[in-house]
Design a protein around this nucleic acid. Structure first.
Lengths: 242, 242
DNA sequence: ACCTGAACACCGTTCAAGT
DNA sequence: ACCTGAACACCGTTCAAGT
């Protein structure tokens, strides 16, 4: 029993077991034992199913069939729970599979994966910022970023440009997911998602003529199409750095 | 007294005065009279000085020297107050001054103004989304957007491309302000702003080699420089649409 | 070792008075 | 017409027991 395995280490509870103590049981009264990770996952479910306002300690406890007080045996406070939520998310961030010989297509693919990951946790960056959490605390959470930087260096970019390209790539994808997808994936109640163009339909004649014309004469494009346009711009920008 | 002026109309209180009634006094007990707008401005100050967690009805009342209950004579509830905050912000959105003959420089200038505007209200888009508010409710708030679309049409873009260019411009600027500036303008307490690169300094040897190399061999670039890189990409993207 | 239940301070909101 | 103060339900968190 020299080394505990990965999941065991990550889900260790704050009440430390002495070395060589028996493992904590997987179940208790029919319910799975609480762990920091299990609590964080329940909280992430609440966050993406409802929203940040409904993410309360009481709601997390209720979802796990436990009193709110029980959570405090594993997390110090709400802020600590949010930190664990960030960590759980980060661990699931996609690992880039990048090929410098087909660099445009592989960058595109990775950005699509990254976008899907951000979309799966809408509002998480905003929540982290509102609570002054520092993401990327540990080195292994930055592995995807290291691979991405390596890729840009492999394209022949200078270190400075590789740093810029990395920053801009993450910025483009996270910005798109948070500022665009978040609205389109769950529009405010009462708005018609399909017709949602950002422009009110009850306009006085002559108001906003150009905006109206452009919307009338454009085909409706789903967010995916706009995202590809952003990626095309990004790729052209990287190309210009070489 | 046929037409009330702009500010009067916008700050009308819900308790309607009969037509021809005298104006409500500007002051009351030495303090300026409450209005929806004045309440929203106090709330915006709290939001940007502290953060969304400190934005409470009680705090807004205290800042105005009034009991929390008094606010409910002007706003229906917290959500209504947030809506008024959005409206106050939107009214202050910069009007583009765009010249198709010097289109690159004037687009750049407008984007800088727009970025400054977003930075002045950090977390406002996230707050609006968390509370399911619909921004851009009224037509006059979309005036800047109409001007921007007119500008892109004037460059010879097709309606479809003008729509894309508008979306992407707003997306780029808002995304940069919310995802990048928000962190750099007020980093989590305990981090050194000048050295903040997003990478922890206590790395084991051999960990994240490429990220470390890139950071070591890059000059520190303030966010302004990265923003200009984003704008260069945006301009190249628009150029490619013509 | 880990849980529950009561309790406290705080927040949004409402009710009943005050002037 | 507009304000205050008390009150209610809810939230984060803690204390004192339970098993």
């Amino acid at each position: 029993m020299a080394e505990t395995d990965d999941t065991e280490r990550l889900t260790a509870s704050p009440g430390e077991h002495a070395a060589g103590a028996r493992r904590r049981p997987e179940f208790r009264k029919g319910r799975p034992t609480l762990t920091r990770e299990r609590i964080a996952r329940a909280a992430l479910e609440i966050l993406s199913e409802t929203g940040p306002a409904e993410l309360t300690m009481r709601a997390v406890g209720a979802r796990l069939g436990v009193s709110p007080r029980a959570l405090y045996n594993y997390v110090a406070d709400r802020r600590d729970l949010l930190g664990e939520m960030v960590a759980v998310c980060q661990r699931a961030r996609p690992q880039p599979r990048l090929d410098t010989d087909r660099w445009q297509e592989s960058l595109r693919t990775y950005c699509r994966d990254l976008r899907a990951w951000y979309r799966a946790h809408p509002g998480m960056p905003a929540l982290a910022r509102a609570e002054d959490l520092t993401p990327f605390a540990s080195a292994d959470l930055l592995r995807p970023d290291d691979i991405l930087v390596e890729f840009f260096l492999g394209l022949g970019l200078s270190p400075q440009n590789a740093y810029r390209a990395w920053s801009i790539t993450v910025l483009q994808v996270s910005g798109f997911a948070e500022m665009w997808d978040a609205w389109h994936d769950r529009p405010p109640p009462g708005t018609d998602p399909a017709a949602w163009t950002g422009v009110p339909s009850n306009l006085a004649a002559g108001e906003l003529p150009h905006l109206r014309r452009v919307i009338a004469e454009s085909d409706f494009e789903p967010p995916d199409v706009l995202f590809e346009s952003v990626l095309t711009m990004l790729i052209a920008g990287v190309e210009a750095m070489r």
